[in-house]
């Protein structure tokens, strides 16, 4: 297992009585972008939530940097370097951008918090101009960037994003994907992406995972999935 930042083996998960993910296994190396794709309701988001500890894990193993973290509650996972960004409600809409960043650094010492906020503002200068705007007044793309910034404040090593481009216009989605590449290339983060609009996301990622009806149907380099005509046509709407 050494060498992988995250490895998942034989994971079965769901919500209460609803068993959704079946026997999922995969490994992810440090500094890679993995995109999980698949049709609606195939269990992509549930897999992500199970890894982070929000969905119920029935059996299987999740290990992070070589140690078993399967049963850790979300806030503990957040502390040890995992981050999860939900698809919606990932910022406080009624709070200003500044207040959102303060909340993201809530558990940190004041001076450290100030430094980290400064740091992420340098990564995402667009937020600098909107510090006193309420988050609800931001555009969809800006809001996702704010959410990303809030995640980065806690210096996670593995960032899991649930359909970050879901509600964005294609052009803005592309911008956001650039930011995600930046996470890997400049900040050396490992990223897991769940995406519906598969093609653009697969193009920027290193590895891909295709889920169909709760099971992993493909696991490998993302190029491989992009070039697999049959799978692409069947599940991803690619030509």
């Amino acid at each position: 297992m050494v060498g992988y930042i995250l490895s998942v083996s034989d994971l079965n998960a769901g919500y209460g009585r609803f068993h959704i993910v079946f026997d999922a296994s995969f490994n992810l190396a440090d500094g890679e972008i993995l995109t999980i794709v698949g049709p609606n309701g195939s269990g992509k988001s549930t897999l992500l939530k199970a890894i982070f500890g929000i969905a119920t894990v029935y059996s299987g193993l999740v290990s992070f940097k070589g140690s078993d973290v399967t049963r850790y509650p979300p806030h503990v996972k957040a502390r040890i370097g995992l981050a999860y960004l939900p698809q919606t409600d990932n910022v406080f809409a009624e709070l200003s951008v500044r207040e959102n960043l303060v909340m993201a650094s809530y558990t940190l010492e004041e001076s450290e918090a100030r430094d980290r906020i400064e740091e992420v503002l340098n990564i995402y200068p667009i937020l600098k101009q909107k510090l006193d705007y309420k988050a609800k007044s931001l555009s969809g793309g800006e809001r996702q960037i704010l959410a990303l910034a809030m995640t980065l404040i806690r210096k996670p090593e593995l960032i899991m994003l649930d359909e970050p481009t879901g509600n964005l216009a294609p052009i803005i989605a592309k911008e956001l994907l650039k930011k995600i590449v930046q996470l890997r290339d400049e900040l050396k983060k490992t990223v897991i992406l769940v995406e519906q609009s598969a093609k653009a996301a697969l193009e920027i990622s290193d590895r891909a995972l295709l889920m169909v009806s709760g099971r992993i149907a493909y696991e490998g380099p993302s190029k491989g999935l992009l070039e697999d005509v049959e799978l692409g046509k069947k599940y991803l709407g690619l030509r």
Binding site: P74, A78, A93, L95, M103, A104, Y106, T107
Partner: peptide, 22 residues
């Protein structure tokens, strides 16, 4: 105040607030 902002944050979205360690 930080705690005051945390109050507003917790009221608006308790689950996100919890994830952030509030």
């Amino acid at each position: 105040t930080k705690f005051g902002i945390a109050m507003r944050a917790s009221i608006e979205n308790p689950s996100l607030a919890r994830v952030l360690g509030i």
